[in-house]
């Protein structure tokens, strides 16, 4: 039973959500976080150096 209990979420998000109103925009905090993370991930993917370039140059 302890094993089954441990499958319950540590931070269940079952309470009513919070929402951001900005003019016509009305978005849940959860969705907002997802969108911001997506944009941050995209920008980071463009800016962060990709590892292994030296190895690659050395190999050719």
């Amino acid at each position: 039973m302890a094993f089954l209990w441990s499958l319950a979420a540590f931070i269940p998000l079952d309470n009513y959500g919070h929402y951001i109103h900005w003019g016509v925009i009305n978005i849940s905090v959860a969705n907002f976080i997802v969108v911001v993370l997506m944009i941050m991930t995209f920008v980071a993917a463009l800016l962060l150096p990709f590892p292994g370039r030296n190895r690659r140059k050395g190999n050719q």
């Binding site: 995209f42 993917a45 463009l46 990709f50 292994g52 690659r56 050719q60």
Partner: peptide
């Protein structure tokens, strides 16, 4: 090709 060198390619 050697130009394939960016994190954007992992998605």
């Amino acid at each position: 090709p050697a130009y394939v060198s960016s994190w954007i390619y992992v998605f």
